[in-house]
């Protein structure tokens, strides 16, 4: 009799669909695009290691809800649990922003004066009045340019101040700002 129940329970277990578990939350998945050493080979992809935790967390939530749009990141963020997001953000932030002492690009210093209110005097980000502002110094130029365009054109619509601001800046200035920011020496992060 016992055996019959054992068989029945095994059968019942077998009949249940295998639960599809969330993607393993290790950072390897992140590094496959964002670079094994935290330095993506594709400059259209942002450096995330050492980025501010509050900013990473806000972006992962925006990707998860669809407020920020990127096919890959929407799926990735959706696969994280709500509890995973702050944990992952803290882990990525703890790795330290790449420290560079690259010589500055010549033009652009005057153009970025207006960025410092939110992104910090050293453009290493900050907790701004409109939400966490990311580190910009040393970020990839192609990524920075793409985001400035996406704010201006409305493809990135999760930050109203940036949307309004980027509409006022012409294409050449966006290119110059991106190059200048990417070439800035960075302040070491803890």
């Amino acid at each position: 009799m016992k055996n019959i129940w054992f068989v029945v329970s095994v059968l019942l277990t077998a009949l249940q669909p295998h639960a599809i578990r969330a993607q393993d939350a290790s950072l390897d998945t992140c590094w496959s695009c964002h670079g094994q050493q935290g330095l993506p080979t594709d400059a259209t992809i942002p450096i995330i290691r050492g980025q501010r935790a509050d900013y990473i967390e806000a972006q992962l939530r925006a990707y998860r809800s669809g407020d920020r749009e990127n096919q890959i990141m929407n799926s990735m963020a959706e696969s994280l649990t709500r509890e995973d997001i702050p944990r992952q953000a803290a882990l990525i932030a703890s790795l330290g922003w790449p420290h560079t002492t690259a010589p500055q690009a010549s033009a652009g210093a005057d153009l970025v004066a207006g960025c410092k209110g939110c992104h910090g005097a050293d453009l290493m980000g900050g907790p701004s009045p409109v939400g966490p502002a990311p580190r910009l110094a040393g970020q990839n130029a192609a990524y920075l340019k793409s985001q400035m365009v996406a704010f201006a054109e409305g493809q990135r619509s999760n930050q109203e101040v940036m949307q309004a601001l980027m509409k006022t800046i012409d294409a050449d200035s966006k290119t110059a700002i991106a190059a200048y920011l990417a070439g800035l020496a960075t302040t070491p992060t803890p």
């Binding site: 295998h18 393993d24 998945t29 496959s32 695009c33 080979t41 594709d42 990735m76």
Partner: peptide
């Protein structure tokens, strides 16, 4: 093919 018979990869094309 059964789900996750191979790992889910992220391999964005450049």
């Amino acid at each position: 093919v059964a789900p996750l018979a191979s790992p889910s990869a992220a391999n964005r094309s450049r």
